[in-house]
């Protein structure tokens, strides 16, 4: 459904997206996971045709977004990160307008608007204007406007930012409903849990580059069964490295004067040994965090920085 090859986007001398490639299949939720500024939104803007790529190819349903924008865009639905609805038009008129913008007309448009109002749970508020809606209701309408034409490909750019847990759950259900009818969903998020829970395949991005890609299981396998232990305090590099060289099964992921991150099997069981060794170097430890293997620990392992940083 979507084929992205060697996508690159530069703004002056700054490279926002650097050589990204991925493909998506029908009925699949493909997650783009990464911290703020990783290049997720720029990628989705290039895929949606909102900005022109500096290099590479984006094909949607076999149509190049640059050379055949009309054909490619007709298969797309987008739910932008920021709300993009008419606050001064009722919910039903918003859906009618966006349905018409995506080429629906007549009875098809009317019936789809009715269906979407039910899906997003705004039947009772159909005649009300979004300016009187709660944040969650606006998000749902924003989503509804992107699916009113039943697109083959749905692009969701951090759709749950600022959404309460209940509305988030509802949005996730709506996304799953879209894949159930065969749509491909490209989903960007910086919430590891959201990606783990929702996505069939995930690409992890950092500083404009794709640093890992696969199913959740495949990505977890990259971390192995190793736990990640992060210690905050004051550390001298040389004595710490010497002390750890004598500890079997422990490897340093990153070492900075204020923070030390190590990888080891059975983190909770090895913690006491680790602390003895570190404190023996004269280091000071103020905080200790043990993480089970997950996407966040994979990101940490791959980049040496926190996903939420």
């Amino acid at each position: 459904m979507i084929d992205v090859r060697n996508l690159r986007k530069q703004f002056g001398s700054f490279t926002a997206v650097d050589d990204i490639s991925f493909t998506m299949r029908p009925g699949e939720i493909f997650g783009l996971l990464g911290p703020n500024g990783a290049g997720k939104s720029t990628t989705i803007n290039c895929v949606s045709g909102l900005i022109a790529p500096s290099g590479g190819i984006v094909e949607i349903g076999g149509h190049d977004i640059v050379r055949e924008p009309k054909e490619a865009k007709s298969k797309l639905g987008i739910v932008p990160q920021e709300l993009a609805i008419y606050e001064d038009l009722s919910a039903i008129h918003n859906l009618r307008f966006w349905g018409a913008a995506y080429g629906l007309k007549g009875e098809t448009l009317a019936s789809r608007v009715t269906e979407v109002l039910e899906v997003i749970g705004l039947v009772d508020r159909a005649g009300d204007k979004p300016k009187d809606f709660s944040g969650g209701m606006k998000r749902r309408l924003n989503f509804g406007c992107g699916i009113v034409h039943e697109p083959d490909v749905l692009l969701l750019d951090e759709p749950t930012v600022g959404v309460d847990p209940q509305s988030r759950e509802r949005l996730h259900d709506m996304v799953r409903a879209e894949t159930a009818r065969g749509a491909s969903v490209l989903y960007t998020t910086h919430h590891m849990e959201e990606a783990e829970m929702l996505c069939d395949r995930i690409a992890i991005m950092d500083q404009g580059r794709k640093i890992a890609e696969g199913t959740l299981e495949e990505l977890r396998a990259q971390v192995g069964e190793q736990d990640v232990i992060t210690l905050s305090g004051a550390f001298d590099a040389e004595p710490v490295e010497t002390a750890f060289a004598n500890l079997q099964g422990v490897s340093i992921l990153s070492l900075e004067p204020g923070r030390l991150t190590v990888e080891t099997a059975d983190g909770p069981g090895r913690l006491a040994n680790l602390l003895d060794a570190i404190l023996g170097t004269g280091a000071e430890v103020r905080e200790t965090l043990v993480r089970r293997p997950n996407l966040e620990s994979l990101f940490l392992k791959l980049t040496g920085t926190e996903l939420r940083a």
Partner: peptide, 13 residues
Amino acid sequence: DMGTLRRLKTTAA
């Protein structure tokens, strides 16, 4: 400001 001009650009309209 409402983002609708931008969104409209992503449609085939």
